[in-house]
């Protein structure tokens, strides 16, 4: 059962990463938004009540993101781990678990992920990246989380229907 859930978390995130890496012709903001989409999937699965995404799953998908986005090895891995750690800790400490609460945690995780990405790029290049693309990516990512969560919630329900265990209660965002 755990294997099925873990496979769902990992494979869905890998698929999101793979599709995000396609040459969509996005502008400067798109360059920030697209690699963050698999991080959003990790945010969704890490906030699951029953079986949150395993740290090993986060590590593997982060490494895969490094590969497909041609980033220095460890960059997206670190962003993914830091964000998942935050979501998991925040979800555990939350006394009431509702879709609204999950959405608030997810919305708080997005700026954290962007900030960690900016800091790591600063560490790597030694020069601060322009802040404006990051700020303008924020609303796009918040908006992208809703349909992404809906699709992942649908996949979760399909797995449940197929005999697996549903991980996120309440569905959707």
């Amino acid at each position: 059962m755990t294997i099925g859930v873990t496979a769902l978390h990992v494979l869905s995130t890998l698929l999101v990463a793979l599709l995000s890496a396609m040459s969509w012709g996005a502008g400067e903001t798109g360059r920030i938004v697209l690699p963050m989409l698999p991080i959003l999937a990790i945010v969704y699965w890490s906030g699951a009540e029953r079986r949150p995404m395993l740290s090993s799953g986060v590590f593997i998908t982060g490494l895969f993101a490094d590969m497909v986005f041609q980033a220095p090895t460890g960059h997206w891995t670190l962003v993914a781990l830091a964000t998942a750690l935050f979501v998991r800790a925040a979800s555990r400490s939350a006394s009431i678990r509702t879709p609204m609460r999950r959405s608030v945690i997810a919305l708080a995780a997005i700026p954290l992920a962007l900030a960690s990405s900016w800091c790591l790029s600063f560490f790597y290049t030694g020069a601060p990246a322009p802040v404006w693309p990051y700020l303008s990516a924020l609303p796009w990512l918040a908006a992208a989380f809703i349909p992404l969560a809906a699709v992942l919630g649908l996949a979760d329900r399909l797995v449940e229907r197929a005999g697996g265990e549903r991980t996120v209660l309440g569905g959707g965002a």
Binding site: L54, S55, S56, V58, F59, G62, P72, T73, G74, H75, T77, L78, L81, A82, A84, L85, R88, L120, F123, Y124
Partner: peptide, 17 residues
């Protein structure tokens, strides 16, 4: 486990750097 993986990823990034 997150702490371990974060240390590993940080080491990988430092080696890339």
């Amino acid at each position: 486990p997150f702490a371990g993986y974060i240390a590993l990823a940080a080491a990988m990034l430092a080696l890339s750097r």
